[in-house]
Amino acid sequence: METVTEQEWADVERTLQDEGPYSVVPISYSIEYSEKMDILRTLMKNNEKSERALKLTEEIIAMSPSNYVIWKYRQEIVKELNVDLKSELDLFTNYAKENPKCYQLWHYRQLIIEKLNDPLNELKFIEEMLKGDDLKNYHAWSYREWIVKHFDLWKEEFEFSTSMVKYDDRNNAAWNYRFFILSESPYHDINEYLKDEIEFSKQKINFDPTNPSPWMYLRGIIEKSKYELAEFADELLPFCEFLQRNEFYKYALEFQLKVNESILKTLKSEKEQEQQKDICRSLCSKLEEYDKIRRKYWKFIRESY
């Protein structure tokens, strides 16, 4: 009995993959997949750009979404047939939800949006992808950065980052995004935001001092501004000390060390420098004890002053 595909594609010769028995890692494809691929190879060879070819690419993508060859071919057909790009985008929205980590799906989206020269509802779509599947999806965040930069959509993104940090304070991708907005956006001056951002980070640290994300952000944002960490020593060192009145926190110790290293750079006299180095060394010793897995690293830093 003939399969459906055989009748529909009676006029098309088949191009077999034909690695022969003499190969490694051959995949025992399902009959459906290998039939469709045999046809597709012929279509690609003949450069056929037709409705039926378009349909076939979708069927194959459904079975193997990371096959970059099919995506490229589809892209060419879509261009040739003048397919409505918005419907093309809608078509793959569900595939994206089923394959949220597929490089090709995200890249294809980006190409369509670039062609349309319209960000449509992509920001909302990305938010749904993040909240519906994985708050840390690397592709989704990276795509969002591209959209925002490409279409100059910076203005509301700072608020978005706040809402995403609130959603899960330990989502480092959201913190990185916040940093991206403040350091890249032409509408946000990092120096103007600095005071608020220090407050924001401190509040999140108070909430959970064992969360590395706000600690790293706090350091990063100050270092990126026109100020040095040392200039905030009067505020931030007592903050770390108060936080640790009952127990030590490795991220707090690490932060104290960074502030003290920054102070060290400002000192001129050798005697003052030596005293400051002692402070740094003793913080390293504490870290060797409270951040055991990194004890070799902290020993190296201690001996490097």
Partner: peptide, 22 residues
């Protein structure tokens, strides 16, 4: 190395990678 099941169809465009990994 001898061969993969039909479930590996998602790796169709990663055969060179599978060779390397193995």
């Amino acid at each position: 190395l001898k061969g993969l099941s039909s479930q590996a169809v998602g790796l169709d465009a990663s055969q060179a990678w599978i060779c390397y990994w193995i």
